[in-house]
Nucleic acid binder design. Structure first.
Lengths: 170, 170
DNA sequence: GCAACTGGTTGCATAATGCAATCAGTGTTG
DNA sequence: CAACACTGATTGCATTATGCAACCAGTTGC
Protein backbone atom coordinates (compact mmCIF):
# COMPACT_ATOMS: atom_id res chain seq x y z
CA UNK A 1 0.00 0.00 0.00
CA UNK A 2 1.31 3.37 -0.98
CA UNK A 3 0.14 6.26 1.13
CA UNK A 4 -0.80 8.74 -1.54
CA UNK A 5 -4.48 9.07 -0.85
CA UNK A 6 -6.67 11.67 -2.42
CA UNK A 7 -7.99 12.72 0.98
CA UNK A 8 -8.39 11.46 4.52
CA UNK A 9 -12.16 11.30 4.22
CA UNK A 10 -13.46 7.90 5.31
CA UNK A 11 -15.85 7.63 2.37
CA UNK A 12 -13.10 8.48 -0.08
CA UNK A 13 -10.75 5.98 1.50
CA UNK A 14 -13.44 3.32 1.44
CA UNK A 15 -13.90 4.02 -2.26
CA UNK A 16 -10.19 3.62 -2.83
CA UNK A 17 -10.59 0.15 -1.35
CA UNK A 18 -13.60 -1.10 -3.31
CA UNK A 19 -14.36 1.66 -5.75
CA UNK A 20 -13.98 -0.77 -8.61
CA UNK A 21 -16.23 -3.28 -10.21
CA UNK A 22 -14.74 -6.46 -8.82
CA UNK A 23 -13.28 -6.27 -5.31
CA UNK A 24 -16.61 -6.21 -3.55
CA UNK A 25 -17.98 -9.03 -5.71
CA UNK A 26 -15.07 -11.25 -4.70
CA UNK A 27 -15.79 -10.48 -1.07
CA UNK A 28 -19.49 -11.13 -1.68
CA UNK A 29 -18.74 -14.59 -3.07
CA UNK A 30 -16.50 -15.36 -0.13
CA UNK A 31 -18.99 -14.09 2.46
CA UNK A 32 -22.23 -15.40 1.02
CA UNK A 33 -20.94 -18.20 -1.17
CA UNK A 34 -18.28 -19.53 1.16
CA UNK A 35 -15.74 -19.70 -1.64
CA UNK A 36 -12.13 -20.06 -0.55
CA UNK A 37 -10.10 -21.11 -3.61
CA UNK A 38 -9.00 -19.31 -6.74
CA UNK A 39 -10.88 -21.70 -9.01
CA UNK A 40 -14.09 -21.49 -7.00
CA UNK A 41 -14.00 -17.72 -7.24
CA UNK A 42 -13.10 -17.79 -10.91
CA UNK A 43 -15.80 -20.19 -12.08
CA UNK A 44 -18.47 -19.58 -9.46
CA UNK A 45 -19.09 -15.91 -10.02
CA UNK A 46 -22.28 -14.96 -11.84
CA UNK A 47 -20.48 -12.12 -13.53
CA UNK A 48 -17.59 -14.00 -15.14
CA UNK A 49 -14.45 -12.45 -13.74
CA UNK A 50 -11.31 -13.19 -15.72
CA UNK A 51 -8.32 -14.82 -14.14
CA UNK A 52 -5.90 -11.91 -14.42
CA UNK A 53 -8.36 -9.52 -12.74
CA UNK A 54 -9.09 -12.05 -10.02
CA UNK A 55 -5.38 -12.58 -9.34
CA UNK A 56 -4.80 -8.84 -9.24
CA UNK A 57 -7.71 -8.17 -6.88
CA UNK A 58 -6.78 -10.99 -4.54
CA UNK A 59 -3.31 -9.46 -4.30
CA UNK A 60 -4.59 -6.01 -3.58
CA UNK A 61 -7.14 -7.26 -1.04
CA UNK A 62 -4.31 -9.07 0.72
CA UNK A 63 -2.18 -5.93 0.66
CA UNK A 64 -5.09 -4.13 2.31
CA UNK A 65 -5.40 -6.83 5.00
CA UNK A 66 -8.88 -7.75 3.89
CA UNK A 67 -7.79 -11.29 3.01
CA UNK A 68 -5.11 -13.72 4.05
CA UNK A 69 -3.85 -16.71 2.16
CA UNK A 70 -2.74 -20.06 3.53
CA UNK A 71 -1.46 -23.18 1.82
CA UNK A 72 -3.93 -26.00 1.42
CA UNK A 73 -2.40 -29.21 2.86
CA UNK A 74 -4.22 -31.35 0.30
CA UNK A 75 -2.51 -29.74 -2.70
CA UNK A 76 0.82 -27.99 -2.79
CA UNK A 77 -0.30 -25.34 -5.23
CA UNK A 78 -3.70 -24.78 -3.75
CA UNK A 79 -4.26 -21.81 -1.51
CA UNK A 80 -7.07 -21.07 0.91
CA UNK A 81 -8.15 -17.48 1.17
CA UNK A 82 -9.67 -16.25 4.41
CA UNK A 83 -11.54 -13.09 5.27
CA UNK A 84 -10.03 -10.91 7.96
CA UNK A 85 -12.04 -9.15 10.66
CA UNK A 86 -11.86 -6.02 8.52
CA UNK A 87 -13.65 -7.81 5.70
CA UNK A 88 -16.12 -9.59 7.95
CA UNK A 89 -17.27 -6.22 9.26
CA UNK A 90 -18.44 -5.37 5.76
CA UNK A 91 -21.50 -7.54 6.40
CA UNK A 92 -23.72 -4.62 7.47
CA UNK A 93 -22.63 -2.64 4.43
CA UNK A 94 -23.36 -5.61 2.18
CA UNK A 95 -26.77 -5.91 3.82
CA UNK A 96 -27.63 -2.27 3.27
CA UNK A 97 -26.23 -2.28 -0.24
CA UNK A 98 -28.25 -5.36 -1.09
CA UNK A 99 -31.41 -3.87 0.34
CA UNK A 100 -30.90 -0.59 -1.50
CA UNK A 101 -30.16 -2.38 -4.76
CA UNK A 102 -33.20 -4.60 -4.38
CA UNK A 103 -35.40 -1.58 -3.90
CA UNK A 104 -34.10 0.63 -6.68
CA UNK A 105 -32.40 -1.48 -9.32
CA UNK A 106 -33.61 -4.11 -11.81
CA UNK A 107 -32.62 -7.11 -9.73
CA UNK A 108 -33.70 -10.64 -10.49
CA UNK A 109 -35.92 -12.22 -7.86
CA UNK A 110 -33.82 -15.28 -7.18
CA UNK A 111 -30.67 -13.24 -6.68
CA UNK A 112 -32.27 -10.61 -4.46
CA UNK A 113 -34.03 -12.95 -2.05
CA UNK A 114 -30.85 -13.23 0.03
CA UNK A 115 -30.69 -9.46 0.31
CA UNK A 116 -34.33 -9.26 1.35
CA UNK A 117 -33.91 -11.93 4.02
CA UNK A 118 -30.76 -10.29 5.32
CA UNK A 119 -32.54 -6.97 5.59
CA UNK A 120 -35.53 -8.50 7.37
CA UNK A 121 -33.20 -10.26 9.79
CA UNK A 122 -31.71 -6.90 10.72
CA UNK A 123 -28.68 -6.29 12.94
CA UNK A 124 -29.21 -9.43 15.07
CA UNK A 125 -28.92 -11.59 11.99
CA UNK A 126 -25.85 -9.65 10.81
CA UNK A 127 -24.17 -10.16 14.17
CA UNK A 128 -24.85 -13.86 14.06
CA UNK A 129 -23.57 -14.05 10.50
CA UNK A 130 -20.36 -12.28 11.47
CA UNK A 131 -19.88 -14.71 14.37
CA UNK A 132 -20.27 -17.61 11.97
CA UNK A 133 -17.79 -16.09 9.56
CA UNK A 134 -15.28 -15.56 12.35
CA UNK A 135 -15.66 -19.21 13.28
CA UNK A 136 -15.36 -20.41 9.71
CA UNK A 137 -12.56 -18.15 8.51
CA UNK A 138 -10.64 -17.17 11.61
CA UNK A 139 -11.11 -20.29 13.71
CA UNK A 140 -12.93 -18.34 16.40
CA UNK A 141 -15.27 -20.04 18.84
CA UNK A 142 -18.89 -20.08 17.78
CA UNK A 143 -21.37 -18.92 20.45
CA UNK A 144 -23.66 -21.89 21.12
CA UNK A 145 -27.36 -22.31 20.43
CA UNK A 146 -27.79 -20.22 17.30
CA UNK A 147 -30.03 -22.51 15.29
CA UNK A 148 -29.44 -22.90 11.54
CA UNK A 149 -26.57 -20.87 10.10
CA UNK A 150 -27.37 -17.61 8.40
CA UNK A 151 -25.81 -18.79 5.18
CA UNK A 152 -28.06 -21.86 5.27
CA UNK A 153 -31.11 -19.67 5.90
CA UNK A 154 -30.26 -17.48 2.92
CA UNK A 155 -29.62 -20.51 0.77
CA UNK A 156 -32.96 -22.02 1.81
CA UNK A 157 -34.70 -18.82 0.72
CA UNK A 158 -32.96 -19.02 -2.63
CA UNK A 159 -34.01 -22.65 -3.07
CA UNK A 160 -37.59 -21.78 -2.18
CA UNK A 161 -37.76 -19.13 -4.87
CA UNK A 162 -36.24 -21.45 -7.45
CA UNK A 163 -38.67 -24.24 -6.50
CA UNK A 164 -41.64 -21.91 -6.84
CA UNK A 165 -40.39 -20.75 -10.22
CA UNK A 166 -40.00 -24.34 -11.40
CA UNK A 167 -43.54 -25.05 -10.19
CA UNK A 168 -44.95 -22.15 -12.20
CA UNK A 169 -43.13 -23.31 -15.30
CA UNK A 170 -44.88 -26.69 -15.41
CA UNK B 1 -29.21 3.37 -19.56
CA UNK B 2 -28.65 0.21 -21.51
CA UNK B 3 -29.86 -2.97 -19.95
CA UNK B 4 -26.83 -5.17 -20.42
CA UNK B 5 -26.04 -5.92 -16.83
CA UNK B 6 -23.50 -8.46 -15.74
CA UNK B 7 -26.03 -10.09 -13.42
CA UNK B 8 -29.25 -9.35 -11.56
CA UNK B 9 -27.54 -9.52 -8.18
CA UNK B 10 -28.34 -6.42 -6.11
CA UNK B 11 -24.75 -5.99 -4.98
CA UNK B 12 -23.48 -6.26 -8.52
CA UNK B 13 -26.05 -3.77 -9.77
CA UNK B 14 -25.20 -1.39 -6.94
CA UNK B 15 -21.57 -1.61 -7.99
CA UNK B 16 -22.51 -0.82 -11.56
CA UNK B 17 -24.02 2.38 -10.17
CA UNK B 18 -21.18 3.60 -7.98
CA UNK B 19 -18.38 1.14 -8.55
CA UNK B 20 -16.14 3.97 -9.64
CA UNK B 21 -14.04 6.47 -7.82
CA UNK B 22 -16.19 9.55 -8.23
CA UNK B 23 -19.95 9.00 -8.29
CA UNK B 24 -20.30 8.40 -4.60
CA UNK B 25 -18.04 11.34 -3.76
CA UNK B 26 -20.29 13.65 -5.74
CA UNK B 27 -23.29 12.33 -3.84
CA UNK B 28 -21.37 12.71 -0.58
CA UNK B 29 -20.70 16.39 -1.31
CA UNK B 30 -24.32 16.95 -2.16
CA UNK B 31 -25.64 15.12 0.90
CA UNK B 32 -23.18 16.32 3.53
CA UNK B 33 -21.93 19.50 1.91
CA UNK B 34 -25.23 20.71 0.52
CA UNK B 35 -23.64 21.51 -2.84
CA UNK B 36 -26.09 22.03 -5.68
CA UNK B 37 -24.15 23.68 -8.55
CA UNK B 38 -21.54 22.45 -10.99
CA UNK B 39 -18.96 24.94 -9.78
CA UNK B 40 -19.52 24.16 -6.11
CA UNK B 41 -18.99 20.48 -6.79
CA UNK B 42 -15.97 21.15 -8.98
CA UNK B 43 -14.08 23.44 -6.59
CA UNK B 44 -15.41 22.24 -3.26
CA UNK B 45 -14.30 18.64 -3.39
CA UNK B 46 -11.31 17.68 -1.27
CA UNK B 47 -10.20 15.24 -3.94
CA UNK B 48 -9.99 17.59 -6.92
CA UNK B 49 -12.34 16.17 -9.52
CA UNK B 50 -11.80 17.47 -13.03
CA UNK B 51 -14.56 19.13 -14.97
CA UNK B 52 -14.95 16.50 -17.69
CA UNK B 53 -15.30 13.71 -15.15
CA UNK B 54 -17.76 15.75 -13.12
CA UNK B 55 -19.86 16.51 -16.20
CA UNK B 56 -19.81 12.85 -17.19
CA UNK B 57 -20.81 11.60 -13.75
CA UNK B 58 -23.59 14.15 -13.34
CA UNK B 59 -24.99 12.93 -16.64
CA UNK B 60 -24.83 9.29 -15.68
CA UNK B 61 -26.31 9.95 -12.23
CA UNK B 62 -29.19 11.75 -13.92
CA UNK B 63 -29.66 8.85 -16.33
CA UNK B 64 -29.88 6.59 -13.29
CA UNK B 65 -32.49 8.84 -11.66
CA UNK B 66 -30.23 9.60 -8.74
CA UNK B 67 -30.16 13.30 -9.57
CA UNK B 68 -32.37 15.80 -11.30
CA UNK B 69 -31.40 19.11 -12.76
CA UNK B 70 -33.41 22.33 -12.79
CA UNK B 71 -32.64 25.77 -14.14
CA UNK B 72 -31.59 28.34 -11.60
CA UNK B 73 -33.83 31.42 -11.96
CA UNK B 74 -30.98 33.73 -10.89
CA UNK B 75 -28.74 32.78 -13.81
CA UNK B 76 -29.74 31.48 -17.21
CA UNK B 77 -26.81 29.09 -17.48
CA UNK B 78 -26.81 27.93 -13.91
CA UNK B 79 -28.37 24.62 -13.02
CA UNK B 80 -29.45 23.29 -9.65
CA UNK B 81 -28.92 19.62 -9.05
CA UNK B 82 -31.20 17.82 -6.63
CA UNK B 83 -30.98 14.42 -5.02
CA UNK B 84 -33.83 12.04 -5.72
CA UNK B 85 -35.36 9.74 -3.11
CA UNK B 86 -33.19 6.97 -4.50
CA UNK B 87 -30.06 8.97 -3.65
CA UNK B 88 -31.35 10.19 -0.30
CA UNK B 89 -31.79 6.58 0.77
CA UNK B 90 -28.06 6.12 0.44
CA UNK B 91 -27.66 7.90 3.79
CA UNK B 92 -27.53 4.67 5.83
CA UNK B 93 -24.98 3.24 3.43
CA UNK B 94 -22.90 6.41 3.68
CA UNK B 95 -23.14 6.16 7.46
CA UNK B 96 -21.96 2.56 7.55
CA UNK B 97 -19.28 3.19 4.97
CA UNK B 98 -18.00 6.17 6.93
CA UNK B 99 -17.97 4.20 10.16
CA UNK B 100 -16.18 1.28 8.58
CA UNK B 101 -13.63 3.54 6.93
CA UNK B 102 -13.01 5.40 10.16
CA UNK B 103 -12.33 2.16 11.96
CA UNK B 104 -10.08 0.47 9.43
CA UNK B 105 -8.51 3.07 7.18
CA UNK B 106 -5.99 5.89 7.74
CA UNK B 107 -8.57 8.66 7.99
CA UNK B 108 -7.78 12.16 9.18
CA UNK B 109 -9.49 13.14 12.40
CA UNK B 110 -11.20 16.25 11.15
CA UNK B 111 -12.68 14.46 8.16
CA UNK B 112 -13.86 11.44 10.10
CA UNK B 113 -15.62 13.24 12.93
CA UNK B 114 -18.77 13.52 10.80
CA UNK B 115 -18.75 9.77 10.24
CA UNK B 116 -18.27 9.12 13.96
CA UNK B 117 -21.13 11.41 14.93
CA UNK B 118 -23.39 9.89 12.29
CA UNK B 119 -22.64 6.42 13.57
CA UNK B 120 -23.28 7.43 17.18
CA UNK B 121 -26.56 9.03 16.16
CA UNK B 122 -27.65 5.72 14.68
CA UNK B 123 -30.81 5.09 12.64
CA UNK B 124 -32.85 7.84 14.34
CA UNK B 125 -30.32 10.43 13.22
CA UNK B 126 -30.23 8.96 9.72
CA UNK B 127 -34.02 9.14 9.47
CA UNK B 128 -34.00 12.75 10.57
CA UNK B 129 -31.24 13.55 8.09
CA UNK B 130 -33.19 11.95 5.25
CA UNK B 131 -36.27 14.00 6.22
CA UNK B 132 -34.20 17.15 6.09
CA UNK B 133 -32.79 16.21 2.70
CA UNK B 134 -36.28 15.53 1.36
CA UNK B 135 -37.33 18.97 2.55
CA UNK B 136 -34.27 20.67 1.11
CA UNK B 137 -34.03 18.86 -2.21
CA UNK B 138 -37.53 17.64 -2.97
CA UNK B 139 -39.57 20.38 -1.32
CA UNK B 140 -41.15 17.92 1.09
CA UNK B 141 -42.65 19.07 4.35
CA UNK B 142 -40.28 18.91 7.31
CA UNK B 143 -41.67 17.18 10.41
CA UNK B 144 -41.71 19.81 13.19
CA UNK B 145 -39.68 19.97 16.38
CA UNK B 146 -36.47 18.31 15.35
CA UNK B 147 -33.94 20.60 16.96
CA UNK B 148 -30.77 21.59 15.09
CA UNK B 149 -30.36 20.06 11.65
CA UNK B 150 -28.19 17.00 11.30
CA UNK B 151 -25.95 18.75 8.84
CA UNK B 152 -25.46 21.56 11.37
CA UNK B 153 -24.67 19.04 14.10
CA UNK B 154 -22.05 17.37 11.92
CA UNK B 155 -20.61 20.72 10.94
CA UNK B 156 -20.43 21.75 14.61
CA UNK B 157 -18.46 18.60 15.36
CA UNK B 158 -16.06 19.42 12.57
CA UNK B 159 -15.60 22.97 13.86
CA UNK B 160 -14.97 21.65 17.35
CA UNK B 161 -12.17 19.39 16.15
CA UNK B 162 -10.63 22.18 14.13
CA UNK B 163 -10.82 24.57 17.08
CA UNK B 164 -9.16 22.06 19.38
CA UNK B 165 -6.42 21.47 16.84
CA UNK B 166 -5.81 25.21 16.52
CA UNK B 167 -5.64 25.44 20.31
CA UNK B 168 -2.99 22.74 20.50
CA UNK B 169 -0.93 24.45 17.83
CA UNK B 170 -0.50 27.64 19.86
C1' DG C 1 -17.48 47.07 -23.74
C1' DC C 2 -15.06 44.27 -20.58
C1' DA C 3 -13.86 41.19 -17.01
C1' DA C 4 -15.43 37.58 -14.27
C1' DC C 5 -18.42 33.73 -13.88
C1' DT C 6 -21.63 30.12 -15.75
C1' DG C 7 -21.61 25.01 -17.09
C1' DG C 8 -19.47 22.66 -19.68
C1' DT C 9 -16.37 20.41 -24.25
C1' DT C 10 -12.15 19.02 -26.73
C1' DG C 11 -7.66 16.87 -27.51
C1' DC C 12 -4.38 14.08 -26.04
C1' DA C 13 -1.55 11.20 -22.78
C1' DT C 14 -1.66 7.73 -19.37
C1' DA C 15 -3.68 4.05 -16.63
C1' DA C 16 -6.98 0.47 -15.88
C1' DT C 17 -9.62 -3.23 -17.61
C1' DG C 18 -10.97 -7.34 -20.37
C1' DC C 19 -10.28 -11.33 -23.28
C1' DA C 20 -7.96 -15.28 -24.92
C1' DA C 21 -4.17 -17.92 -24.89
C1' DT C 22 -0.65 -19.79 -22.38
C1' DC C 23 2.29 -21.58 -18.46
C1' DA C 24 4.68 -24.58 -15.11
C1' DG C 25 3.99 -27.36 -11.21
C1' DT C 26 0.92 -31.07 -9.04
C1' DG C 27 -2.00 -34.93 -8.53
C1' DT C 28 -4.50 -38.81 -10.72
C1' DT C 29 -5.26 -42.54 -13.76
C1' DG C 30 -4.22 -46.32 -16.71
C1' DC D 1 5.78 -43.94 -16.36
C1' DA D 2 3.09 -41.52 -19.77
C1' DA D 3 -1.07 -39.06 -20.53
C1' DC D 4 -4.17 -36.04 -18.71
C1' DA D 5 -6.73 -32.91 -15.92
C1' DC D 6 -6.37 -29.53 -12.24
C1' DT D 7 -3.79 -25.97 -9.49
C1' DG D 8 -3.08 -20.80 -9.35
C1' DA D 9 -1.79 -17.93 -11.93
C1' DT D 10 0.96 -14.78 -16.14
C1' DT D 11 1.46 -12.75 -20.82
C1' DG D 12 0.22 -10.10 -24.96
C1' DC D 13 -2.71 -7.18 -26.95
C1' DA D 14 -6.99 -4.48 -27.73
C1' DT D 15 -10.32 -1.60 -25.66
C1' DT D 16 -11.97 1.53 -22.28
C1' DA D 17 -11.67 4.75 -18.48
C1' DT D 18 -9.35 8.41 -16.33
C1' DG D 19 -6.75 12.75 -15.81
C1' DC D 20 -4.90 17.13 -17.17
C1' DA D 21 -4.88 21.42 -19.41
C1' DA D 22 -6.69 24.26 -22.52
C1' DC D 23 -10.53 26.11 -24.54
C1' DC D 24 -15.45 27.63 -25.47
C1' DA D 25 -19.82 30.23 -25.78
C1' DG D 26 -23.35 32.38 -23.30
C1' DT D 27 -24.49 35.45 -19.01
C1' DT D 28 -23.98 38.83 -15.56
C1' DG D 29 -22.27 42.85 -13.14
C1' DC D 30 -19.86 47.04 -13.63
Amino acid sequence: MTDDHRSGCPINLSLEVFGDKWSLLILRDMIFGGRRHFRELLLGSQEGISSNILADRLKSLMALDMLTRADDPTHKQKGIYSLTEMAIELVPIMAHLGAWGSKWLPVSEELSIRAILLEEGGPPMWVQFMSELRAEQLGALLPPGQGPSVRAQLQAGYQAVMARKAQLAL
